[in-house]
Design a protein around this nucleic acid. Structure first.
Lengths: 142, 142
DNA sequence: CGCTTTTCTTGAACGAGTCAAGAAACGGTA
DNA sequence: TACCGTTTCTTGACTCGTTCAAGAAAAGCG
């Protein structure tokens, strides 16, 4: 079994100052994958009841910039965050309720990572979003 | 050479009422691919100076629901619209300036359209976004 | 322990998009 | 062509996720 994540050490490894809000935010993102900012604020306040929403916004931006969390924002949704990073996975998004689920990359390592014509762009990431209806929102047909 | 698009006829074909705002919005989306709502409002007002922003919002929603235009919204961007639909193409987005370019699907018809594990979702679309820097924003290295 | 820099608190502000009520326009029918 | 019911547009207020800004607190170095 893997060792539980050492959030302060992860912050130091990214050359970030270790602050109580950042540790709590990092923990909340690990505990609640795909949570939006408001949910993360709620989770963080279970540990630190006094944190400001701005501290959470700042921490999320900092952690995302450092690569410790990933920010995703499906069209029509608020920002969501996840701690699973660097493994090239993609997302399923429910058009009805907005639920997000992870999917491993379909064709292995880096399938759709090459555009047929890059128009001179320097591409660093390919994001794949599968749109549909989750089991709870699918019309049950008998 | 293809015949120029007959916007009123396209609206009727989708069983939508033909109104001057809708025709102008449809034309603006065709003329300005990937334009955001504000740009579309500006373009529409060249023909109809008095249209309200709400009429443009409503028209865009209606046209998108009817499948005559497609709404795209890369993370961190406002909503953008395009008239190229039904051909399974994807997008290049510049992280710096937000420019959007079209790319044909890399592996032909429907490459990444199948998730490795659909988690019970009913998937109807796979959206691929390539992130990077456009030629204008790329650091020129000599 | 004290100092400098970064981060957090507080509170206001921004802006894309939505909501709601009444006026106008579409298009089927007489 | 005129009428009528329904849809759409105008007007203006409003929501809410997110950002901005100034000063207070705290991280981490010497």
């Amino acid at each position: 079994m893997p060792t539980p994540p050492d959030y302060p050490q992860m912050l130091r490894g990214a050359e970030l100052r270790v602050t109580r809000p950042r540790v709590a935010v990092l923990g909340a993102v690990h505990a609640h994958p795909h949570a939006d900012t408001e949910s993360i604020i709620g989770a963080v306040r279970e540990d630190l009841p006094e944190v400001s929403h701005q501290a959470v916004y700042d921490s999320l931006h900092t952690l995302a910039a450092a690569g410790l969390v990933r920010r995703i924002q499906p069209a029509g949704s608020v920002a969501r965050y996840e701690a699973r990073i660097g493994d090239n996975h993609h997302h399923l998004v429910c058009r009805s309720c907005g639920t997000v689920a992870d999917v491993d990359c379909a064709v292995g390592a880096a399938p759709c990572l090459h555009a047929s014509d890059d128009h001179g762009f320097t591409i660093d990431e390919a994001e794949v979003v599968f749109w549909g209806l989750c089991p709870a929102c699918s019309p049950t047909r008998s």
